Amino acid sequence: MFGQSLSMNIMAPERIYSGTDFIVNVNINKGNVDGFGRLLIKIPSGFTPFEKVSQNGKFEFDGEQIKIVWLNLPSEKGFTVSFGVKAAPNMEGYQVFRGEMSIGTENGSYRAEARPHIVTVEKTDNIATGDEVKIEYSYIKEKGVTAIRQKPYLDDNNIAVVNILVSKGQLSGFGKIEETIPPGYIAEAKVSNSAIFVFNKSNRKVKYLWMNMPAVNQFVVSYILKPEEGRLENIPFIITGEFMYAEGSTSKTKEIIERNIELEKLLSE
């Protein structure tokens, strides 16, 4: 029974930058059909997927395609699974995502294919200029506690600016941001939002520390990176970081995710 009572579609940005990651949502409408289910998504070469929301299915990636298997499908008539995808730094051009969904029941089998989704990858330098910061904003609004780094850009003085948006909801109390910057730079605070700012040159660590985080649900901290003397052309410009916070008596950690976004526009939506 090809496509009967079963349909699916793939939702993802139409344009991304090399070296960044993004979210893919797969919407599945199965009606009243229940039973064994299998979702296959072909992943183009150069992309590395990672699990986000599998709706109690078993997520696997064999190097070429994602497979999510359910022994018993979710009871809802329609549901969405999502996964993240990391683009390799040297990617460029258009890439095609294809997918199919199969369901097996006592009364027969069902199968549906998604319309292919094309993602255009633009190759960029590791530091973006201000007018290059573009993305489909609906795909980077994640639920819960998150920390998002706007892709660093050069200001009018040719200095790299790093902005981090923390979405913490109603959390209060202890919080810490810790980032490792590339070699050859000195970090200076720009916006600390009541945090203690510390830069340790020996281990290239930038830290923001709060004993009590700001009362607002979302806030931004910023720092600048000034190059030291010497040639930096051959040094990869990579920043990694974590946001650590206390939830009750438990300490938790979230990776700081880098996105090609304008934080002012994101906060205004």
Rank of each mutant, 00 (worst) to 15 (best):
S5D: 14
I23P: 01
I118C: 02
G31N: 14
K265C: 01
S172F: 03
N217R: 15
E229A: 11
R149V: 04
L171Q: 11
E188I: 05
I43A: 01
K134N: 09
L232G: 01
W70M: 12
P236Y: 11
A112Y: 00
I135K: 00
I68G: 04
V206S: 10
N158L: 12
E122Q: 14
F61G: 14
K176F: 08
E247A: 08
G37Q: 04
Y245M: 12
P13G: 01
I140C: 10
G144H: 11
Y208N: 13
S202L: 09
I235H: 00
K30D: 01
G3E: 12
F59Y: 15
S172Q: 13
I135V: 05
T105I: 13
V198I: 10
V220F: 01
L165Q: 01
I68F: 09
N32H: 04
P89R: 15
N157Y: 15
G169H: 13
K42E: 12
A87M: 08
P182T: 04
N212C: 05
R111G: 03
I238S: 10
R98A: 05
M1T: 10
P13E: 00
N126V: 02
G84D: 10
Y208F: 15
G63A: 09
L267K: 02
I68Q: 12
T20E: 08
F22M: 05
I140A: 02
V33A: 06
I186M: 07
V166Y: 04
S54N: 11
E113V: 04
Q170P: 14
E233A: 11
P183D: 07
V220M: 02
N27Y: 14
L171P: 07
N27M: 07
K134I: 08
Y110D: 00
T129L: 03
N158W: 11
M1R: 14
S102F: 10
E14D: 13
N107P: 00
A160W: 02
N163K: 04
S202V: 10
Y245R: 08
P236S: 09
A12Y: 09
A189R: 13
I41W: 07
K168A: 13
M11R: 03
S7E: 11
Y137K: 03
K254A: 09
T180F: 03
A88M: 03
E100A: 11
E247N: 12
L266G: 01
K58T: 13
S222I: 09
N163C: 09
I41P: 03
K252H: 14
E247R: 14
D155T: 08
E64A: 12
I28T: 06
V119T: 07
K86I: 13
F219D: 00
G175L: 07
Y94T: 15
Q65P: 00
K77A: 09
K123E: 05
K254F: 05
K201G: 12
A128M: 15
N260H: 08
N193A: 15
T20Y: 09
G104V: 15
E76M: 10
K86P: 08
I135G: 01
Q65K: 15
I159F: 08
N9S: 11
N107Q: 04
